[in-house]
Design a protein around this nucleic acid. Sequence first.
DNA 1: CGCAAAATGAACCAACTGGTTAATTGAGTC
DNA 2: GACTCAATTAACCAGTTGGTTCATTTTGCG
Lengths: 221, 221
Amino acid sequence: MDDSLTSETGTNRARWKQDPEGVRADILAVALEEFSRNGLSGARMDDIAAKTRTSKRMIYYYFGDKEGLYRKALEAAYKKVRKGEEELDLEHLPPKAALERLVGFTFDHHRKNPDFIRLVMIENIHHGRFLEQSDAIKKLNEAAISQIRNIYDKGVRDGVFRAGLTPLRIHWLISAISFFNVSNARTFSLLFGNDLQTEAGQACLSADACQTVLKFVSKEG
Amino acid sequence: MDDSLTSETGTNRARWKQDPEGVRADILAVALEEFSRNGLSGARMDDIAAKTRTSKRMIYYYFGDKEGLYRKALEAAYKKVRKGEEELDLEHLPPKAALERLVGFTFDHHRKNPDFIRLVMIENIHHGRFLEQSDAIKKLNEAAISQIRNIYDKGVRDGVFRAGLTPLRIHWLISAISFFNVSNARTFSLLFGNDLQTEAGQACLSADACQTVLKFVSKEG
DNA sequence: CGCAAAATGAACCAACTGGTTAATTGAGTC
DNA sequence: GACTCAATTAACCAGTTGGTTCATTTTGCG
């Protein structure tokens, strides 16, 4: 989209300008898409390079090898997604409303990031071999739990949530519903029809998700 | 494990015996494991052949090509899993008990078939390209919905389940919870600790699953 | 300017990998 | 017991793919 090659200024042979960070970011963006679409072994380095504004040589120059590129793409994906979650402000809401909003947001957020979901699926297929190596990612996720802990503890104190649960189990439930909705959309549609993947169907599932979690946590239905 | 090559009976060169069905089944079993472990593009035909009691040529002889083998392995996996579900008998139970038993069973059943879960994950990564082609599989799944419909309708008539839901949405919820528990076990453990993957943790999640679904469907919590 | 280091491009390569060819052996059949 | 066809083996092959070599350009700097 931007130039450095399209600007045919002086000589016939276009002059190129150095832009290390731009090149890195460009490669990473393409890699994310390709790995997400085709998996680690399914993605082709030549294809990635072709879709880049630079060359294959540069990928190896900056990322070492295929797995190095995949690792960085995975990290980038996690960072990007977790960043999108920061905008949520739940502290001032009463527990039930806060939890409801969190579920609705998570459901939507997963939906809006199918590339990320697919990378996580791929990572699970690889037994988390690369996620395992990235300490950076692990730290990003502690916030999610403490966020729920705040809401849940307040809810228990207020007498609207039942005691005996843990933030982790609540997070697990929210994740399961939101993740599955994206990860298995295709096979589920093929086996049981496409109704739940329409806009109306998704709205229905989103509402179901909120109700499910709220009823699970609430003291009385 | 069995012979036909190990039985060095007569001449020094071991004689082989024809066993088409055995060879097919052997290949399919190995293929299922390899595809499940490594994905479609990740699995190597040479590796599959090596783990077989027969040769690579036989794979092409019986299955045509790699994708043909994958397709048959996928079908075999679905058949095997759906077969395991038949043993369940819910007709005589009251609605709540029936649903609870169904959830518990599904949760366990998914846990006991990680290979199948992984194949479905892989299939989703491939946008269901192969599941799409298999009409045989699609028919197997209609039973799951009607099973829930029976339970749900009876529950609504009895006044213990709330009206306005659909069997499909209930099945979706049960699947989401049971599937995610296996599919994302590894990354979830890496990010949030291994507690929920212990025996105690899984028992807890299984109970949570039952409660979650029951509360979602029930008229009052 | 002149020079070293970083950044980039184009062609190249060895190994892997899905798939095949050609020849051999077993099993029914008349 | 010759004949036919399915089942099986071992060696082979061509295209793909991750990765590299080498030369060239740009940039920062004294």
